[in-house]
């Protein structure tokens, strides 16, 4: 039996966490959700994860700071920024992310991006 790929969804909005968990579970991923960047970083210390979906505007540590920390500790970890704001794209600190997807009711773009990145990992 193939081991499921493990996704970590970091978003302070419960509904988004729930939606993405449902969608990606349907697509046969194992989905772990975290409501804060701080918890996510802790989790990453001793758990194996294949890809992170990361919100930017969150209370406490925001996604940009979290991204920097993830990249520095988990070299090669694909992180997909998933934000309602498109203008952070202009911020070079987000450029180290593997992809930047603007939140939408249509999840096709996010799903396609994630699948592509997972496939590239092999």
């Amino acid at each position: 039996m193939e081991i499921k790929k493990r996704l970590l969804v970091v978003d302070d909005e419960e509904n988004i966490r729930e939606l993405l968990k449902l969608e990606f579970t349907d697509l046969d991923y194992e989905v772990i959700v975290m409501e804060s960047a701080f918890n996510a970083l802790n989790y990453l210390k001793d758990h194996q994860i294949d890809l992170v979906i990361l919100d930017i505007k969150m209370p406490g540590m925001d996604g940009i700071e979290a991204l920097e920390k993830i990249i520095s500790t988990q070299r090669g970890m694909p992180v997909v920024i998933h934000s309602a704001y498109s203008h952070y794209k202009e911020n070079y600190l987000t450029w180290s992310a593997a992809a930047y997807v603007v939140k939408s009711g249509e999840l096709e773009e996010l799903i396609n991006t994630v699948e592509t990145l997972i496939r590239e990992q092999g």
Partner: peptide, 17 residues
């Protein structure tokens, strides 16, 4: 507009599901 986009994606996401 930005603030609306987040909740709208939730409505849309679940509705499509």
């Amino acid at each position: 507009a930005h603030e609306v986009r987040g909740p709208l994606s939730i409505i849309g996401g679940f509705a499509r599901r």
